[in-house]
Design a protein around this nucleic acid. Structure first.
Lengths: 267, 267
DNA sequence: CAATGTTGAATGTTAGACCTTTAAACCGAG
DNA sequence: CTCGGTTTAAAGGTCTAACATTCAACATTG
């Protein structure tokens, strides 16, 4: 995998973009490992026969996605980096937000993806949770028993609860997806939260917590299913109260809990 | 076109990054809608009291994630854009690939996420597939009955099959996630495919297709479950046949930075 | 020996120039 | 008046040549 980097001739347009693409491909295919240093800006400029400014712009394109980081100083340079998960999730949520505004995705798409993913996180959390995970899940449930809390704070606790479950599932990929969806919630959600009955929601959260605590995936999924159904019903109600003629009514997929849904080889 | 853009004073370090963050926030919060034009490079440079080159670099940072596009010409400029789904998926898969190489995610994480997501895509596909979707799912199944085919071509058909199912589920978010995972497959997988029995795999594919064709979500999930179980078993077998320590080396190159390399931390 | 200065190499930023592209304004021929 | 070519202004793309800042290693000094 430690092949040399072989630059190709540039076309006449978009020099910085072409250089960035070549470097990106090289990084993906292992020419440089994470932590290794790329050529300096001056060397790249020389290699591709462009000015330093153009080479810099190419590196900026890579640094925007966290593929590389730059450091100044005598032993500085540009280094292959491992993208930060939160940054990636933020970029994802930015994209989702724009898709939503452009009408390329609907609220229903985002909600559906969220429930699908979280349903499985709940299952996995019940199987893999550590005592520490349980603490992290329990804390926001108990804290949200204070019903005089500000709505924003209460929502933060809700997010904390769901995030803790996601983490307990111990799958980085699923966690990334959930984080992105959570981050794009403010852009997509908002209207229905005021109509929720906090005691009901908190009870449902507690039921989920208890099932996870019992390491009972099926019970956890059922509890989560009830939670989702309640939220969905409140939402339908709200839509019905409004002039809902043009709003597409959300239809959640009937998600079966799945004793069978666990195919993956054990670690 | 809600609020005006209010630039903030810059700190002393990383001017282009700070400008990019401000613009990014402004775009996310709807200061400019998709399609609208941002200030010109010269105007931005003037606004933030930096040189044009620095303003340009800030815009490059945004264009790298597809948040904006630039156009030359008299009525050119930098415009808010809706990121292309495939580009976003590619960036995601690049990140996943690097996480894998750095040991932050395992093959197991990626596989598990894939099966979790696809299990639900299969369910949704059975509910929502159009006749056209069915065609797209059926074609690669029939084509892969030619067992003399090159392994690479056969793999392409496999990908085509799974992609068609994903599309039939009609959820952009899930489709994005699946695309990213599929794109990162070459970086993570490919060891076990040679051990598969093509006839078995194709039969399983056909069973999934038939269930989707029957609009029977449960049967479809069960068929998919059998497919996954088979793949999982082959993989276990392969792992058992090899020396475990070798496998770890070859499939999970535990890359650690040499002392000379700069430790990576996104700020 | 420890604190302090020097220096070299790299990125960060600036300034101004020129090139290329694009659409609109212009203008002359039919 | 219309059509088609030409001009032109505006904007991004690139180049050059500096200067500024940072940082580690080395040298110097108290």
């Amino acid at each position: 995998m430690a092949d040399a980097f072989v630059p190709e001739m540039l076309g006449r347009r978009d020099a910085s973009g072409q250089i960035a693409r070549q470097l990106r491909t090289a990084i993906s295919s292992g020419v440089w490992e994470p932590g290794e240093r790329l050529p300096t800006e001056l060397e790249l400029a020389d290699t591709f026969d462009v000015s330093r400014a153009t080479a810099r712009e190419a590196l900026k394109l890579l640094s925007a996605t966290g593929l590389v980081v730059s450091a100044r100083g005598s032993h500085g340079g540009t280094f292959v980096s491992v993208p930060n998960a939160v940054d990636v999730a933020e970029q994802l949520s930015d994209s989702i937000g724009l898709w939503y505004r452009a009408g390329n995705v609907t609220l229903h798409d985002v909600d559906e993806a969220r429930w699908v993913l979280e349903m499985h996180c709940v299952d996995l959390a019940a199987r893999r949770r550590t005592p520490r995970d349980l603490e992290a899940i329990k804390a926001p449930v108990e804290a949200s028993r204070d019903f005089n809390m500000d709505i924003a704070d209460w929502l933060d606790l809700d997010l904390e609860f769901h995030t803790a479950i996601t983490k307990a599932a111990k799958n980085q990929i699923l966690e990334l997806a959930m984080t992105a969806i959570h981050l794009s919630r403010p852009a997509t959600n908002t209207v229905f939260v005021e109509l929720l009955d906090r005691a009901t929601v908190t009870d449902q959260h507690e039921a989920i917590y208890l099932a996870i605590s019992d390491s009972d995936p099926q019970k956890a999924q059922e509890a989560f299913q009830r939670h989702v159904s309640y939220l969905d019903e409140v939402r339908r109600q709200a839509l019905a109260d409004l002039n809902a003629s043009e709003v597409i009514v959300s239809t959640l997929p009937a998600i079966r809990h799945s004793a069978a849904n666990r195919p993956i080889a054990a670690e």
